[in-house]
Design a protein around this nucleic acid. Sequence first.
DNA 1: TATGAATGAGCATTCATTCAT
DNA 2: CATGAATGAATGCTCATTCAT
Lengths: 192, 192, 192, 192
Amino acid sequence: MSKIEKNKKQKENSLYDAAYHLFTTKGIHNTAISDIVKKAGVGKGTFYLYFKNKYDILDKIILDKSTYVLSEAIKQTKEKEFNNFEDELLYFIDYIIEYLRKDRLMLKLIHKNLSWGIFKKAYKDYEEIHEIYSMFQSGYKNSSLSRDYIGKVLFMILELTGSVCYSSIILEEPVGIDEMKPVLFQTIRKII
Amino acid sequence: MSKIEKNKKQKENSLYDAAYHLFTTKGIHNTAISDIVKKAGVGKGTFYLYFKNKYDILDKIILDKSTYVLSEAIKQTKEKEFNNFEDELLYFIDYIIEYLRKDRLMLKLIHKNLSWGIFKKAYKDYEEIHEIYSMFQSGYKNSSLSRDYIGKVLFMILELTGSVCYSSIILEEPVGIDEMKPVLFQTIRKII
Amino acid sequence: MSKIEKNKKQKENSLYDAAYHLFTTKGIHNTAISDIVKKAGVGKGTFYLYFKNKYDILDKIILDKSTYVLSEAIKQTKEKEFNNFEDELLYFIDYIIEYLRKDRLMLKLIHKNLSWGIFKKAYKDYEEIHEIYSMFQSGYKNSSLSRDYIGKVLFMILELTGSVCYSSIILEEPVGIDEMKPVLFQTIRKII
Amino acid sequence: MSKIEKNKKQKENSLYDAAYHLFTTKGIHNTAISDIVKKAGVGKGTFYLYFKNKYDILDKIILDKSTYVLSEAIKQTKEKEFNNFEDELLYFIDYIIEYLRKDRLMLKLIHKNLSWGIFKKAYKDYEEIHEIYSMFQSGYKNSSLSRDYIGKVLFMILELTGSVCYSSIILEEPVGIDEMKPVLFQTIRKII
DNA sequence: TATGAATGAGCATTCATTCAT
DNA sequence: CATGAATGAATGCTCATTCAT
């Protein structure tokens, strides 16, 4: 990577970081492009060299962050040993929940879009994301269910987890995440 | 209700209807207050007599419409006879799905907000909403599970349904609702 | 005064008091007619039965309050005995200063308008105001100066007092009123 | 100064001039930002690049114009020769009066703000302003009065002059400036 | 490539005033 | 006399986007 390339990447990253920080702390609606570039320390025009508009950078951030959470979760899961698939999956889900609980601002931003990462760009780019899919498929290796069906179940479990996290952690509705977690786990156990 | 009271209610309703129509067709972001009042046929200041700002009327619309969907679903369900609780619940869920499929614009508006928050608020105001809860509790009458636990399961089923509807119907991700529905139904069957 | 007349006067007074309170605490610019009527507990239309607009009631308030200060000052002065005119005038001036110091909000409102404009209008309406003029003229009874000339000097002393009070009490520029007062008194002594 | 810097200064100046002209002819209250930018021939956003709001530009104009009057007065005074301090001071005051009489619109704008607040601010920025202070202090060099006391007397003379100018020239109360001037001069003579 | 001054359409919001009740 | 719902012109201000440097 040439020096110029490096510099470009650096500018893009600083815009990215600035936007993430402002979106999470001030809210999307209250963050203007001018705020982002000021915080990033670059010129206003520079923003448009890297992103189309506010929602372009926002989408990229959400995608990136959700993918990151999922890939971290699978990485940690893969490093452990489990007696069975159920334990493995629940460890994976628990990792996600605990991560989001610790980073409420990120959870607020990705809202209920946590399953997105799997089905979009990330699926293609990140090696780790393949693994979650593989893990899930392996867990069902003895069943007669089709690969497609199993994929959809994974999708639903992730949607459910994302939704429950948002409700329980951000809104604390109907109850906080600590009370919700056992029910969620039991439900997932039933699903698989 | 006096003539003046009637007139007020009429004004509020026309604003409400105009806003709903514009939000669903043009999008929230692209709808200005001036559009709403023009369509409603009232003065601009009148809007502020009834609503604080665009998001105030939006919230009211989302709450209202979501409540309506749920209450319609329970009403229709109660009118039918079922052999067992599972069939009853799935009919209820199916009614919601089909309703949202037919009214994609409304689904887009209520996004993934068809859930507990709404449910809880609606619970206080609408008699019908009590029934869904009763129905669900009755279905579990022979189980040893606590009422609380059962309530949380209902919450999760609603969250899951809402999330899946939005993804499948609006984004068609990972697949359309027709392909998704059997998997969702099977999943709900396992949950209960 | 009939009961109806009394009621009218009462409404006018409550508007007057509400406006005075809001003008002094929130500022003229930030006070709307709707604020005034809300505080006064009357209908919006009622305001226009008694006043032309915001500046109409403001002018009346300023006139009224400034007149009150001056008339109070002369009343108190007349009740005392003095060895000479100089002492009498300085007592009068001091009374004004101390009054304004205690009611900074009123001083802020009447700004630097404590002077001839007010004085002149008040002259016609309030018996007490005649007395200050008389007092001042008497003080000069042995001089060869014309009545007109003496009137102008009184005007200047009042202008100077008003200006100094505003600067010293409100802005504390160049110094506070305590430091300023001896200089002002010495200056007035030289003038007369 | 680069071309771009020059252009910026030009824009600011045209806004400044436009605002001054509109404030003096139409009044502050009746001048909208849109009027200013239209007259200045710049975009609306440009205004907010240079000024916070209407009162920001107004304050700057008042400060600037008042400073200009004072600095002009001292410049002219310094160019003349005088037999004594009294003549010098009265020439200085007279210059101010005549200037304001010729430019009534400016006088109306700066109202009764021609005084210490302005003086103090200007003191830092304008070399000429130092001179008026020096002149005044020199006039008292043989007196036993403290520098502080003398400064306060200067302050009062300026306040008095400003107040009298506004009343006599703008309101013509209690009489016009021609009739008032001899009394003012005589009063100042007595003060010093 | 990078900048940031300039733009002006677009928007939310206010508020004095009216007038039917 | 009193009201307060309705109005809509008026206005301040924002902000995404452009483009000359």
